[in-house]
Design a protein around this nucleic acid. Structure first.
Length: 224
DNA sequence: TGCCAGGCCGGGT
DNA sequence: ACCCGGCATGGC
């Protein structure tokens, strides 16, 4: 996350369900996560770190064509070959190492069984995932929410940008602060967390990009 | 052409 | 406890 100084402002505390309803009414359901299996979701979560999703899709296509989009098959893959397959996603050497680190964790702690991993429960699994080199808070929460179906609210660059622009908090807030901001104000519901984050990303992509903002038509105008 | 994308880590103050 | 450079491709 880039940090930028912002003048002190009085924080606003909008009704976040009203904000959610406004996004949903304007944009509709987003059908996240775009992935067919929990394992594909996990790999996508790592591949999309600071990367456009269109590039991740190309990498996923390569992995599917190579028939290695399962934990067992990908584990048998040399790290260099894995890097070559995920090349379109960018940072391919780093991400190959991160995927390898996750697979090592999955096999050492859960015998390669994703369901066993998910059964650890939200709190403990989150800590375990954060101990894997290459999995930070957003990736961990994405895995928890969209692969494990555990209600962990996902915070990303769009979440900070949109809501700091609307003076809910400063642009320099920490991940944990933003996560608490939401979990304290919206019901702890899996489907809601799922759709809320997806709608934030869609809203950000369409209306809240740094160089091509389209704030005038943002569906959130008037709710803060 | 340059800037940006659904972060994270490791080394330096 | 911050702060910052590095990682890399593809789209507009």
């Amino acid at each position: 996350m880039k940090r930028q100084w912002t003048p002190p402002r009085k924080p606003k505390a909008p009704d976040l369900m009203q904000v959610y309803n406004a996004m949903y009414a304007a944009l509709g359901p987003q059908h996240w996560w775009p992935g067919e299996t929990p394992f594909e979701v996990i790999i996508g979560a790592i591949l999309t770190q600071n990367t456009a999703w269109t590039n991740v899709e190309k990498a996923i296509v390569n992995l599917k064509a190579a028939r290695v989009l399962t934990a067992a098959d990908m584990r048998d893959l040399d790290e260099k070959k894995l890097a070559a397959l995920i090349r379109p996603a960018g940072y391919f050497n780093i991400k190959a190492r991160r995927i390898r680190a996750f697979l090592d964790y999955l096999y050492e702690h859960h015998g390669g069984d994703l369901d066993a991993m998910f059964a650890r429960g939200l709190k403990r699994l989150r800590h375990e995932l954060l101990d894997v080199k290459g999995i930070g808070p957003e990736t961990a929460d994405s895995i928890l929410l969209y692969a494990a179906a555990l209600p962990s609210f996902v915070v990303d660059a769009y979440t900070k940008r949109i809501f700091s622009r609307h003076d809910c908090f400063g642009a320099d807030v920490t991940y944990h602060e933003v996560q608490e901001y939401f979990t304290r104000r919206v019901p702890h519901d899996l489907a809601l967390y799922n759709e809320y984050h997806a709608l934030i990303v869609k809203t950000g992509k369409d209306y809240c990009r740094p160089s091509t903002p389209d704030c005038d038509r943002c569906p959130l105008i008037g709710f803060f």
